[in-house]
Simulated scan of single mutants.
Amino acid sequence: MDWNSFWASVGQFFADRGGDLLAILGILVGAAIIRWILHFVVKRVVTQIVTGIKKTQRVDDTQSLQASPLAAVRVVQRTRTIGSVLNNVITWTIIVIALIMVLDTLGVSITALVASAGVIAAGLAFGAQNIVKDVLNGLFMVIEDQLGVGDVVDVGPATGVVEAVGIRITQVRDVNGTLWFVRNGEILRVGNMSQGWARVIIDLAVPYETDVEEVEAKLLKTAGELASSPKWRSTVLEKPEIWGLESISAEALVIRLVIKTRTTAKDEVARELRMRIKKSLDDMGVQLPALNSIVLSGYEGAASVRGSKPPRTKPVSVVENKAPRRAPRTPRKPEAE
């Protein structure tokens, strides 16, 4: 191998295309700088909005917003989600523009490339439709505020806290710490447990011979004390309710107690309420039966949505079909022999 001719050809290449290489390097550096600037602007705007809300509510961290109006929490989560999506859109847009500029600098005809890409795209259309579906579904989820960063959601494949929402992938961290990467196109329904309010439901099984009215009064009193205590007053939205007997069997009676709470405090309120109920039942001397033979039913029923306040319906008139009355039969007298 003639090294002199090799290095001579390398030098000739840089002499001929050195300007193009410097232009390509400038395009890449410029794209990186523009991306950094735009990401910095998005981050700055998101930080200012979140900080402004925290100052308005006079809190130091986002978790403390649970005591503030629910709209403030949604603005924080929605702002962070839109910021995450904007960062993804900016990155991919800059990459596509930089790639087109690099190809133009190398002398590649963009028109011919687009024509060739059209032929290739026809063959890849079936496979690319999943990507398009992911992107469109992700944009609609953000626009419609179906979920946001920090929300506790059930998206089917995974249930947990949303850590990031991209244009194609949503990251969900479950209770075990596993980070799930869920394609937006595969999300057919979103169960958001962080919007609006939540409901603590306690189903208590007591022995059949227990005085139901006495137990219900004790449960309601215990839940009312929790709701009125200074520590839990800001997390409970409405007065506790007794929905009555949910199921009945020879072994036990199941009584349902519910409390409407803020979404961020549902689990804490439920744990505290169970502890207080346990102490109240100990004071009453009520021994709970074994649950291995008791089926708690009614939790998934549609009728439970309205609870103890069912919808009002108009009375339906009932027309009785009265059959003609028959004359009483007279007993036949025995004939004389």
Score class of each variant (00 low, 15 high):
L253A: 15
A303L: 10
G285W: 08
L237Y: 01
K278E: 11
A302G: 06
R256N: 12
A227C: 04
V295M: 12
D267Q: 13
A270G: 06
S247A: 09
S280T: 12
P230S: 04
D267M: 15
V269M: 08
T261V: 15
R274M: 10
S234H: 13
E300T: 10
W232K: 02
N292C: 02
R274A: 10
E272Y: 01
K260R: 09
R256D: 05
K260C: 10
A303S: 11
E238M: 03
M275I: 15
G244N: 09
T261C: 10
A265P: 09
E225P: 01
T261F: 05
Y299R: 12
S304F: 09
P230W: 07
E238I: 00
S234A: 12
V269W: 01
E241W: 00
L281D: 09
E246L: 14
P240V: 00
I294K: 01
W243D: 12
K278V: 01
I255T: 12
G285T: 07
S304L: 14
T264S: 14
A227H: 00
R271A: 14
E251D: 11
I255L: 13
E272R: 04
A227T: 06
T235P: 00
R274D: 13
S280Q: 08
K266A: 14
S249K: 00
E300K: 13
G285Y: 11
P289K: 00
S280E: 11
A303R: 04
M284S: 04
V269S: 07
L257N: 03
L291Q: 14
P240M: 02
A302M: 07
L296N: 03
L226E: 03
A250S: 15
A303V: 14
L253H: 12
L273W: 04
K278M: 01
K279R: 09
L281H: 01
G301P: 01
K279M: 07
R233Q: 11
E251I: 15
N292P: 05
I294M: 06
S293V: 11
G301D: 15
P240E: 00
V258Y: 01
A302T: 12
T261M: 08
S297Q: 09
V258H: 00
D282I: 06
L237P: 07
S293H: 11
A270R: 06
E225C: 05
S247W: 06
V258R: 06
L245M: 09
I277G: 07
R274Q: 14
L226T: 04
